[in-house]
Write a protein that binds this DNA or RNA. Structure first.
Lengths: 217, 217
DNA sequence: AAATTTGTTGACCGGCTGGTCAGGTTGTGG
DNA sequence: CCACAACCTGACCAGCCGGTCAACAAATTT
C-alpha cells in the first residue's frame, strides 16, 4: 500500500508529485472531452467526471476553461513538431518523406484525440494558437519547403510544388485520426487492426512517393 | 421596388415563397455559425443575428437546434454525393479520378462552411448522420472500389488499395476547406486567389495520378 | 369582408454553465 | 508537535442557453 515516489528522487517530493499527476490526469480527460464534444460542447463537469475529480478541483489547477484548453492544444502541437525530426538528417527524399509519413501515421493512431482537438481549433479560426501558426509552424514549413526544393533542383524527385505536397501529407495522415469514425464505419464498424494500419501506411507512402517520382519503400 | 415573385409562377404563391426564402436564409446563416463555432458553441441567438431575424422566428421554421443542424448536414451530404457523378460515365481512370478531384476541390472552395460542419460532425462521432454513413456512403464507396479494382485488373492503373486512394482524395481535397485558415496563414494571411487554387488543384491531381501509375493531365 | 391559415415577435422560464469561496483536510518545514 | 502552505470540495451564484407562448400582422380562402 506504500506507493510513495521515493525512487523519483529529484524534486519528487510528495507535493509536486500530486500536482504533476493531477495536472496530467485532468489534461488527458480534457483532451478526450474536447475532442468528442468540441470546445463549446465540452463542460468542466464532463471533464471532471472523466477525470474522477470534483469540478472545483479542476479550477484549482486550471483557472479557466480557456486555460485548460490552451494547455491541451499546446501539448499536441509539441508532439506534432517532434515528429518533424523524421524529416531532418535524411539525405535523400525517399527516406526523409517516407519516415515523416510513418511518424505522422503513428501519431494519428496514438493521439487521435489530440489530432481532433487541433483540427477543431484550426477549423474555428485558430483563436488560441494563431501565434503558433504565424511563427513556429510558418518557419518550420518554409524550412521544409526549402529542403524539398533542393532535392528537386538536384534532380532527386519530380518538380512538384513542395507546399502542396506537405498539405497532402498532413491531410492524408491526419485524416486517419480526424475521420477515424467514418473509416471505422466503412470498415464494418470495427477499428483498424494492426495489419490494416500497416496497409494504410504502406498505401499512403506508396502513392505519395510514386507521385513525386520515387519508387517507394 | 416591386420584387414580387410573379415570374416564378409554378407554386410561386407569396406564402410558399416566404417560407422557402426564410428557410434558405436561416440555413445559410446556420451553416456559417455551426462551421465557425461548432454545434456546442453555436447559439440560436447568433444564428438569428446572422440571418437578421428574431430568435423566435427561427423556432417557427425549425423546431429545435438539432433539427436545424440536421438539415444543414444533410444538405451538405447531398452536394457531396452529386460530385460523385464525375466518377461515373468515365471509361478510363485518368479522366474519372481527375474529374472527381477537380469537382471536390471546387466544392471545397465554394462550400467551405459545409465542409467544416461535415468534418465536425464526423469528428464528434457522427451523432446525427450515422445512418447515412452506414447506408448511402458505404454503398457509394463499395461501388467505387469495385470500379477502381476493375481498372486495376485491366492493367489501366497501378495495383494500389482503392479504399486508401479514396481516403486520400477525400482528405486532401477537403483539407483545403477544413484547414483553410491554416493554409491562409501560411499564405501570408491572404486567401488563395484563382491562380493559387488552380495550382493547388493541379498539384493534387499531378501527385495522385502519378501516384497511381497515370501520367496526369 | 369575414373567417382562417400562416407568419412574426417581445417577453418570459427552467435548467445548465463557468466560476467563486469559505471552510476543511493533508502534507511539510522548523 | 506546531505553524504554515498546499490541496480539496460542497454549496452557491449570476448569466446565458434552448425553447415556449400569447398576442398580433399579413396573406389567402370562402
Amino acid at each position: 500500500m506504500d506507493d510513495s515516489a521515493q525512487k523519483t528522487r529529484t524534486r519528487g517530493s510528495r507535493r509536486t508529485d500530486i500536482r504533476r499527476e493531477n495536472e496530467q490526469l485532468i489534461l488527458r480527460a480534457a483532451e478526450k472531452v474536447f475532442a468528442e464534444a468540441g470546445f463549446g460542447g465540452a463542460t468542466m463537469q464532463l471533464i471532471a467526471d472523466m477525470a474522477g475529480l470534483p469540478k472545483a478541483n479542476l479550477h484549482y489547477y486550471f483557472a479557466t476553461k480557456e486555460e485548460l484548453y490552451r494547455r491541451v492544444v499546446e501539448d499536441i502541437f509539441q508532439i506534432w513538431l517532434r515528429a518533424a525530426d523524421s524529416f531532418d538528417n535524411a539525405p535523400d527524399p525517399a527516406s526523409g518523406i517516407g519516415a515523416y509519413i510513418e511518424a505522422k501515421m503513428r501519431i494519428s493512431r496514438e493521439h487521435p484525440f489530440g489530432s481532433k482537438v487541433w483540427a477543431s481549433e484550426v477549423m474555428h479560426g485558430a483563436p488560441v494558437i494563431q501565434d503558433y501558426l504565424e511563427t513556429t509552424l510558418r518557419d518550420w514549413t518554409e524550412g521544409r519547403i526549402t529542403a524539398i526544393r533542393r532535392w528537386i533542383d538536384q534532380g532527386q524527385m519530380a518538380p512538384i510544388d513542395p507546399r502542396h505536397l506537405l498539405y497532402m501529407i498532413w491531410a492524408t495522415t491526419q485524416h486517419y485520426a480526424d475521420f477515424g469514425h467514418q473509416i471505422e464505419t466503412l470498415n464494418g464498424g470495427k477499428p483498424l487492426n494492426d495489419r490494416q494500419w500497416q496497409a494504410a501506411t504502406d498505401s499512403v507512402k506508396a502513392i505519395i512517393l510514386r507521385g513525386i517520382g520515387l519508387s517507394g519503400a
